[in-house]
Nucleic acid binder design. Sequence first.
DNA 1: CGGTCGTTTGAAAATTCTCAATCGGAGTGG
DNA 2: CCACTCCGATTGAGAATTTTCAAACGACCG
Lengths: 232, 232
Amino acid sequence: MSCQVCPVRDRALCSSLADDELCELKYIARERLVCREQTICWAGEEGLICANVVTGLFKVTAALGDGHDQTVGILYPGDFIGSPTPSTNKFSITALTDSSICVFPRHLLEKFLSAHSHMERVLLQRTQASLDEARERIMLLAHRSAEVRVATFLVDMARRSPVKTRVPDRTENLPSIELSLSRAQMGEILGLSNETVSRVLSRLSRRGLVDFPNGRRVAILNRSALSEIAIP
Amino acid sequence: MSCQVCPVRDRALCSSLADDELCELKYIARERLVCREQTICWAGEEGLICANVVTGLFKVTAALGDGHDQTVGILYPGDFIGSPTPSTNKFSITALTDSSICVFPRHLLEKFLSAHSHMERVLLQRTQASLDEARERIMLLAHRSAEVRVATFLVDMARRSPVKTRVPDRTENLPSIELSLSRAQMGEILGLSNETVSRVLSRLSRRGLVDFPNGRRVAILNRSALSEIAIP
DNA sequence: CGGTCGTTTGAAAATTCTCAATCGGAGTGG
DNA sequence: CCACTCCGATTGAGAATTTTCAAACGACCG
């Protein structure tokens, strides 16, 4: 697969590279398909690979001891995985959907970054953005009600996920997004039980803000009202 | 003040520098004293400065809308503040105690980092460590009881704060640390009301795990029992 | 058709928040 | 030096929210 037609050509770390640099990087990259539920990084292990998320969705999790996991982050297409420096993974990374990633052996990427320091600068910015994002999530979990958490999560997903269908409307677009998550997984992300998630979604549905046409797909019927509920 | 006697010479970003590089960096650095409660970065403003925390304690906060703040991170001596690239601050940074920081104008530090890419690499590692830390905090806020949150926080503070006094004991050391935080501020960090924080601390005190000799100082009487309660 | 798994819904239990009163130390002014 | 005030800490009681336990439901699959 050529970088020229890469779906995240303009979003991933590589977007900071000129065409000739991109060619060079491609030599150490290989595409890899990842099946839903498959874990590509295990907490506690050495991080031997780095990667860009190309398509799909991943979760960053820690084992909770009681068998369950806590999700501490979501990775969308264009996001970077791993560290160029030798390090132990603090969290596991697992595919939520069938996905594809662009993999680099860690030590080779480390060399490449040293030779292309502007890309390393971009990676730093990305990491700081992830830090800001994690802190936003802290704000979401502390003090916020279940309804606010769920609404914020839905708005977030709608913003970052590739929109599948758009039904034109007099007032606004109505994006329908693939959730790809069970109620339990949403609870894992939002720090709620699956029952509470279900209850909130039912309530939002009764109020006409969202709809569940089939299974795990969710249609956002009233995005502005949902944003109203969500964190500013 | 000379870098040679800097309290965080071995912990801050600068620890990655050789002596001659350190001399060079010193030209663009200046020490600055910050009074308790003083805010050095405001959310929404342009980040014109970077800095190392030398002494004291800072909190990273976001306004919550109802007048209160939510603390999303704590900065200890040696921690880095700001971003070398132009960016808008997403959060405010405020001193919890009288503190001192080592300030660099952003654009000058940016140049320095470009010329000393190994330091930029270290900064990247630091930022990733902060990200991991923020994610640990997410784990703490999601699903955890008030007691676990408080105990984890105390153990964390005891680990990262400079110990003020140590009373030798048959079984273990008994560090007494300066909390520097009101109950309300702890609640701000842990996503709890100040009353809940107070209740948990009273309970821990009755169980003989901690003591409050005077005001905001806390003595950890049984660190292992506290760690037992805290997150692993 | 039966079984499994995720969802939905109900009701009781547990936890935390909110409101309110009291307490205690630090600082101030007479 | 003492009374007074202010602010944070503590403690109690009821309210609100969420979790837990349980049951019922429905879709999917062999």
